Deep mutational scan, measured.
Amino acid sequence: HRQALGERLYPRVQAMQPAFASKITGMLLELSPAQLLLLLASEDSLRARVDEAMELII
């Protein structure tokens, strides 16, 4: 289940942060499945989480 969510998330994360897409997707997969579904449904929520992840990385 998580694998399938990751496969759906990755291209969207890659479009926002290509250099760190794998790392960010891995970080996002730590969230609950319900939270992941919310990110897939909301571009704004996904962008906010990706921005948060980038702050942790750099």
Rank of each mutant, 00 (worst) to 15 (best):
L38I: 14
P33A: 13
E55G: 11
V13C: 04
L29T: 04
D51I: 09
A19F: 08
A34Q: 10
L36W: 02
A41Y: 07
R49L: 14
L40E: 07
I24W: 01
L40R: 00
D51S: 10
I57Y: 03
G6D: 06
L56T: 12
L28F: 04
A4F: 05
S32R: 05
Y10N: 03
E30G: 08
M54V: 09
A34G: 10
M54L: 10
R47G: 04
A41S: 12
Q14M: 07
G26T: 14
I58T: 09
L28K: 04
F20V: 03
A15K: 07
L46Q: 00
R2C: 11
T25I: 14
L5Y: 06
S45W: 06
R49G: 07
R49V: 12
L40G: 01
S42W: 05
L36A: 02
R12C: 06
A53V: 11
L46I: 04
P18R: 02
A48T: 09
D44E: 13
Q14P: 01
S45I: 13
I57Q: 02
Q17L: 07
Q3K: 12
A19T: 11
L46W: 01
L56H: 09
L9I: 11
V13K: 02
G26S: 15
M27I: 10
H1P: 10
E43T: 08
G6M: 15
H1M: 09
A4D: 12
R8C: 07
V13T: 01
I24P: 00
L37R: 07
E30W: 05
K23L: 12
Q3L: 05
A53S: 07
H1F: 03
R8V: 15
V13F: 03
R12N: 05
A48I: 12
K23S: 08
I24G: 00
A19Q: 12
R8T: 11
L56P: 01
T25F: 09
M27K: 04
L9Q: 01
E7K: 10
Q14V: 13
R12M: 15
E30C: 07
S22N: 13
R12H: 10
E7Q: 09
Q3R: 10
L5G: 02
P11M: 08
L38K: 10
L36F: 02
Q35M: 12
R49Y: 15
A4M: 09
A19K: 13
L9M: 05
L9H: 02
V13H: 01
S22C: 08
G26C: 07
S22K: 12
D51P: 01
E55D: 11
V50H: 00
M27G: 01
L40W: 03
M27F: 05
K23Y: 08
L9F: 04
R2K: 15
D44F: 03
S32C: 07
P11L: 08
Q17E: 11
M54I: 07
M27D: 02
L40Y: 03
L28G: 00
E30N: 07
R8W: 13
K23P: 05
V50S: 01
A15V: 10
V50T: 03
Q35R: 05
P18Q: 03
D44R: 07
L5Q: 03
L29Y: 02
A53Y: 14
Q35F: 09
I57L: 12
E7F: 02
I24T: 00
M16D: 02
R12V: 14
L38M: 13
S32H: 09
Q17A: 13
E7G: 05
M54A: 08
I24C: 02
G26R: 11
L29K: 03
R2V: 15
R8F: 14
Q3S: 09
S45H: 13
I57R: 02
M27N: 01
R12S: 06
P18I: 04
S22H: 11
L38G: 12
G26D: 15
L29G: 02
E43W: 07
A48E: 11
M16F: 06
P33N: 14
L37P: 03
T25D: 00
R47Q: 10
I57A: 02
Q14T: 06
S32D: 15
T25A: 05
G26E: 15
L39H: 02
T25G: 02
V50P: 00
S42N: 15
E55R: 14
